[in-house]
Design a protein around this nucleic acid. Structure first.
Lengths: 192, 192
DNA sequence: CTTTTTCATTGATTTAGATCAATGCCATTT
DNA sequence: AAATGGCATTGATCTAAATCAATGAAAAAG
């Protein structure tokens, strides 16, 4: 169990085997069927969630009831509402499974103890956050600087695996477009 | 020297005085006059930059030559092109001073040594990145979920200090609007 | 003090993308 | 096999913001 997670740990920071065994008891496995929720708006985000298998998404719902996808997480990715996780405030996010999934959960208490006791865990976590920050920044620049066509092709190049597994209207939502607009963009790109 | 920076360190992590003195030699002071560049597109970002006094911005230039402001940094903030800083690749960002400024620079080498030698520095840096990540995420949600009016008022509430010191067209650029549109939005808000 | 330059505002027009509405296609369910 | 719901596509229309253009005011430079 936890193979993918341990592999991720190892690939970023040179953990010893003992360290990994120290980490193990802090983890909780969880399975989620497609469409089941990990977190619902209004609840406190009690776990950081590493995806071993499957696919999740986080999204917010606007006034008109439209879902806006904030993040996808395939295997090897981590997903949570970090703000709620850190502050303990109710979340404005929903997180649910797009496919049957196997997860590794880390509670806030576990996370804090790991940060304190295992310096390399802190390093791992720092690298993870840094990667997430850089990805977000790239996304922000792509939103403000690229045409919708460019954004779509850049998304497809960056995340071909997401594109294959996720329905198109969710990609539209992630890109901040309506499904109709994305459909027309695709048509235009295919023609050219 | 470095008062604001040391104050920032202390406020987030309980450094000892000795630790702070260990950090000091890794730092480089720098003054920048208004409009001078800290980083230009195509150069490698060699320093992470903490603002002691003054104001900086980072921006990218699109095909049409329009500047898109990515970030403002007033005193107490850190600014850099983290991607270029980490990877050593040429930057796509420009960073320049909006006012005469006093900075604390940390070279990549210094940063890496500090991360290794002073665990609390790693913790400080982790907390900084986490804060930056959360701010970016809030910004992304505000772009995709809020009307332009709401975004503007939320920006003004969140960063009244920036609004006071920075010309309006730069705020428009930061928000991804033309100056004309921002002007009209303001007019509308004042009337109501 | 005068001359530039930078900046904010306002108006007229254009345009990209949203919205509204309908159709057909799979894939499940029954 | 029929029925249902989720999904992508297409068309017609609407709208928010961009663009183009001009004016003034304020700030900086000479």
């Amino acid at each position: 169990m936890y193979e993918v997670f341990f592999q991720s740990l190892r690939s970023k920071v040179p953990f010893t085997d003992e360290e990994l065994e120290q980490i193990r008891p802090y983890l909780t496995p969880k399975k989620l069927r497609k469409k089941q929720y990990l977190l619902q708006e209004g609840d406190v985000c009690k776990y950081a969630c590493f995806v071993e298998r499957g696919a999740l998404r986080s999204y917010v719902v606007d006034d008109k009831g439209t879902e806006r996808i904030v993040q996808f997480a395939l295997e090897g990715w981590t997903i949570a509402d970090l703000y709620s996780f850190i502050t303990g405030e109710p979340s404005t996010y929903n997180i649910d499974a797009l496919e049957d999934s196997e997860l590794v959960l880390i509670s806030k208490k576990a996370h804090e103890e790991l940060l304190e006791k295992i310096p390399r865990y802190e390093t791992y976590h720092r690298l993870q956050i840094t990667g997430a920050y850089l990805a977000l920044q790239r996304r922000l620049v792509s939103i403000t600087n690229l045409s919708v066509e460019e954004r779509y092709t850049s998304f497809m190049n960056l995340y071909p695996n997401i594109a294959q597994r996720v329905p198109q209207h969710m990609i539209a939502s992630y890109m901040g477009l309506t499904p109709e607009t994305l459909s027309r963009v695709r048509k235009k790109l295919i023609r050219s």
